[in-house]
């Protein structure tokens, strides 16, 4: 076999602060409120879910595609239909404007074991592009050197 391979992306996540990742995640409702296209994509979606960094997930209430409540977990006896939780390192990499290969998609992260998808995932699958867009919103805020 002969092999050619250029430089390209590193397989290592970018430097990050876990607190900065949590703060970036907390900005998602405001970012969504300014994104009419993404909100419209979720116009048929009503769901209570658990999303965010694995070290500090959030209970999120979505109605007609809008986040109407976001509260740090745990909340006593609060239920959720599905959960998507990723390591802070994974989110920091995912939020780069040009994420490294293998860290660039929600399901790439689950495949590599950096995120978990649990529960009754029907609303996640019916609105998969919405959730990909929702959880990518912090790319716009410049976390970890993103532009």
């Amino acid at each position: 076999m002969t092999t050619e391979r250029g430089g390209g992306s590193s397989d290592a996540p970018i430097p990050h602060s876990p607190d900065a990742v949590i703060a970036a995640f907390e900005a998602i409702p405001a970012l969504l409120a300014r994104d009419a296209t993404l909100t419209a994509r979720g116009r048929w979606l009503d769901v209570d879910c658990l999303l965010g960094p694995s070290t500090q997930p959030f209970h999120i209430t979505i109605r007609a595609g809008q986040i109407v409540d976001m509260t740090r977990a745990p909340v006593l006896m609060r239920s959720w239909r599905f959960a998507y939780r990723a390591t802070p390192a994974a989110l920091a990499a995912y939020w780069q404007s040009r994420p490294p290969a293998g860290w660039h998609d929600l399901l790439a992260l689950t495949k590599r074991g950096e995120a978990t998808l649990e529960g009754e995932i029907h609303p996640f699958m019916t609105h998969l592009q919405y959730f990909k867009g929702l959880l990518a919103l912090p790319r716009r805020t410049g976390l970890g050197g993103a532009s």
Binding site: L106, L107, T126, L128, Q129, K132
Partner: peptide, 9 residues
């Protein structure tokens, strides 16, 4: 929608 969303990544 789901086919496209899956492969989009």
């Amino acid at each position: 929608e789901v086919c496209a969303a899956l492969v989009s990544g």
